[in-house]
Design a protein around this nucleic acid. Structure first.
Lengths: 167, 167
DNA sequence: AAAAAGTAGTTGCTATAACAACCATTTTTA
DNA sequence: TAAAAATGGTTGTTATAGCAACTACTTTTT
């Protein structure tokens, strides 16, 4: 960390020497650690209270918002890879939290929805999730929440664009 | 999504009804998806060019910055769980990218450093990482970069505190 | 209308994450 | 100073992520 003396105070350069990487200031690292920590926070809640993995909950969340979605649509909305999705769907079917039929027009296409039980669980989880989200965001003002949200959104779009180029 | 007509334009409320969760606007979800995408972006680079996992690279990064660290110190700095760390360290030892001795004062404590080869690899990866970090950030103006950095830093600190409370 | 290409979903396999149990050593405490 | 607790690190086990190969069906091409 280079710093120099100027008009009575030390000015510390945030940018490090090029030949050393300061992990804790490297933004992809910070993002990853923060995100993992928050994810495991929610994982614990969903797991302890409802015996659901984050993946399973996300599927239910999509079906709560968009009933009658196919597995493929859920995959596009959640970025969950289709094999992971397939297995998670099977578990939710076994527990009768969701139900499945197949489309008459296209026999490959599944039609997924929450069951009544699934809806009950969903209705319990939703307010709880919002509540914990707010708890997490206490470190931001309303304005900062908006800002962070919009910056994150942009970054996400940008990374998607990068993907397309490299594939 | 509730919206109402006012002075000739539709005003759409960003906050949804409390009984439905809009996944794509749920902050922990956005964070997780963005973070995973960026992580896999770097995973691909480290994997393709150096046959290193992110975990392995992070260990090397810490040892580049703090030579002679113990496994435990690396674990504290990187948030990598000790069993994962132990196995990753073994792989790095096998590839002779790092070397290990044990402390004379405390025979349990390992002393880890990059080997010469490890340093060569490190010196190649560091500028590359900075370069890709910049590429990712091209979607932001200078001002936005500052904002993003400071918000993320705050969140990062905040999530650290989260751990302490729950444990 | 048959062959080829594409799509929706499943299954098999490998690597890694996460947790707990464990060993060896050191520190605490009674 | 012996027993108990704590610490640094390893190993075993289970669950999940991610990729590729596969089946079944549909669409496109020729």
């Amino acid at each position: 960390m280079s710093s120099y003396f100027l008009t009575g105070i030390y000015i510390t350069m945030t940018k490090n020497k090029d030949n050393i990487l300061t992990l804790e200031n490297f933004f992809p690292y910070q993002l990853s650690v923060s995100s993992n920590k928050i994810s495991s926070f929610f994982t614990d809640i969903y797991q302890d209270k409802f015996a659901l993995s984050i993946t399973q909950w996300r599927i239910m969340a999509v079906l709560g918002e968009f009933p009658e979605s196919s597995a493929d649509e859920v995959s596009n909305k959640t970025q969950i890879e289709k094999s992971i999705l397939s297995r998670a769907i099977n578990k939710l079917l076994q527990r009768k939290l969701i139900q499945r039929t197949f489309s008459a027009e296209d026999k490959r296409r599944s039609i997924l929805s929450l069951t009544n039980t699934g809806h009950e669980v969903y209705d319990e989880i939703v307010p709880l999730s919002y509540q914990y989200e707010q708890t997490l965001l206490t470190c931001f003002s309303e304005r900062e929440k908006q800002q962070f949200h919009s910056l994150l959104e942009r970054l996400y779009q940008h990374t998607e664009a990068l993907d397309d180029k490299s594939v």
